[in-house]
Design a protein around this nucleic acid. Structure first.
Lengths: 345, 345
DNA sequence: TTGTAAGCGTTATCAG
DNA sequence: CTGATAACGCTTACAA
């Protein structure tokens, strides 16, 4: 193994000098020694030992991406298109900034604590956690943490989160559907599998946007229009079939809080002989890769997955540099008008 | 920070004793001290410092998943359904075995070398690399490495790879299409973007299976039936349109080396007013999540993504324990008969 | 400008 | 059964 000592011996200088060269402290090294050492470093393919780095309190250069969503069914959440896109852009941005990324997919916060402490990580990106988890981790670890898509309460202070204009996006979409002539519009989102809140994570915000837009246009929302979708995929398909067979719960348009569910429903409806948009108009949220490809083109609210990942790393690095930094970034969304929504009248 | 010394002081014993307790060397500790130290360890939430662990050459407990596919277009490969499924199951298995996972998505092998050396990783899972890369890394690093889906040559020795019965799967699928009455069958796969081999990675094997099955049934393969698909998605769509407009290059069935492309083509054909399976029969390979959901159900060759990831970690752990271990695991595949293939005559 | 030495947390060796 | 000590590779305060 090539260590600083190896280099020092080869160059006939002390380890300190080598260290100074490595860290660009050119003021403390003569031009001659500098060149000589730099050459040898390159020749010997010197790589700093991260174990020693961690120990020598010079920062572990390690950032953990903690995916805290509870898995449902047998598939891991990392396979989810949203999660995998965010993972990809986090990994890339972390690497481009000279850090390394540890991927840790575990909803058990105690285990996350252990991991963070064991590795002396410099920061954490937290995906799919509740605000309580965030504050607990920050208190325990005293370490920069950026959450993605976590919902905070009005009084919350001292957190960094990267989220989305979920409320605005849903509001805009609902208004668009109304402008297309729809007045009987359903809202469908996944139900929580833990059970302490109505809708999952950001879906609550999206529901608010929908409700407010309806109210704003003087439209009454029937109770059965706001539908909680089952967690299990098979159950959900049964639900779609029931909805299709029961006249779409009296609606002419259905607004799904996520493209995944919107597309599932399109397939299920198709199998019951119902066509989009002739029999029912469908809108989604996210503008996932699949939605972009599918025909009829899904009407949806576009968010930039990759930007979310990239931005969260940038926020984290800022927090690493300034531990007082606090911010709730809400990334913009765009309405995408596809053929899955029919104008009526 | 809670260190071994903290615990030692609290328990009134030496660091060595604490270390012995931690490592279950019960023979060297009196029952009393054992209990006392164990209690304090728990109370203080002691976590071993991995930096020191690495330095003390006691194993870093770190496994790197290196994703070496070259990115195409602007999307990262980590977003690919196959890659993200494998990532998910690798992460899970690594964690379940008491290791940690570093995710490193970089086709630059020099950089991978640096990473592996810097972190003293105990092993590497290599996804999307060529055999030359594999052998180079093993020679340079002298470290356990398991490749996934890398194709080796007959004479190759001393490697561990987890692959698939690609040849057999393609052979079986082609035979099935023939049994359905098709004699004019096309084979379509992505072309390499580096350009030193005909088809990408495992697709070469799948092509061989197709060719051999055709020959075995005395069917001649026209040159234009074996089609290289463009790397860029947009170009590919233009290609599909051309194929649809030109009578499907004279075929009644098209066998795509991957579901992704099969499904893309289905959409493209649909947009040109051609329907599956009435106008053209389509078969894929992988049985991706999406294929399972889509209607008409895609006829395809099922492989188990999660198993591939899990198995590769298991193989890696075996290789860590026995550095002489060598193996080329070929996981089985199953034919899935959907409605995307029509029986003719 | 360069070098020496202590310290980071852990483990292995060896002595008591 | 228990403990002192050296070693792992690197950084940094301080000495030369």
């Amino acid at each position: 193994m090539v260590t600083i000592k190896t280099i020092a011996d080869l160059a006939g200088v002390s380890p300190t000098t080598v260290s100074n060269v490595i860290h660009g402290r050119t003021g403390r090294v003569s031009p001659d020694t500098l060149k000589k050492v730099q050459t040898i470093l390159r020749e010997e393919h010197y790589v700093s030992n991260m174990g020693a780095q961690i120990l020598g309190r010079h920062g572990s250069k390690l950032i953990a991406l903690v995916v805290a969503y509870r898995p449902y069914e047998r598939e891991s959440l990392l396979e989810d298109p949203f999660v995998s896109s965010v993972t990809a852009s986090v990994e890339q941005t972390v690497r481009e900034n000279g850090y390394f990324m540890m991927l840790y997919n575990n909803p058990d916060m105690k285990e996350c604590l252990r991991m963070a402490r064991a590795w002396n990580i410099e920061g954490m990106i937290l995906l799919g956690a509740q605000r309580e988890d965030y504050f607990m981790l920050r208190t325990e670890l005293k370490m920069p943490i950026v959450s993605i898509d976590t919902c905070y309460l009005p009084g919350d202070k001292n957190f960094v989160n990267v989220g989305l204009c979920d409320y605005e996006g849903a509001f805009e979409m609902t208004e668009y559907l109304i402008h297309c002539g729809h007045t009987r519009i359903g809202f469908l989102a996944l139900m929580q599998n833990t059970g302490n809140r109505d809708f999952i994570y950001v879906d609550g915000e999206r529901e608010r946007g929908y409700m407010d837009a309806m109210a704003h246009h003087g439209l009454k929302v029937e109770k059965e229009w706001v539908t909680k979708l089952e967690f299990c995929e098979l159950d959900r398909f049964a639900q779609y079939v029931r909805i299709a067979d029961n006249g779409f719960i009296g609606c002419t348009a259905l607004f799904f809080a996520s493209d995944t569910m919107a597309i599932e429903a399109m397939f299920a409806f198709y199998n019951r002989g119902k066509h989009v948009p002739d029999d029912i108009s469908i809108a989604g949220f996210d503008d996932s890769r699949l939605a972009r490809r599918l025909r009829p083109r899904l009407t949806t609210v576009r968010q930039d997955f990759a930007l979310k990942g990239r931005r969260s790393v940038e926020e984290l690095i800022r927090l690493i540099q300034d531990s007082e930094y606090s911010s709730n970034v809400l990334l913009p969304v765009t309405l995408v008008k596809g053929e899955s929504v029919k104008k009526i009248k």
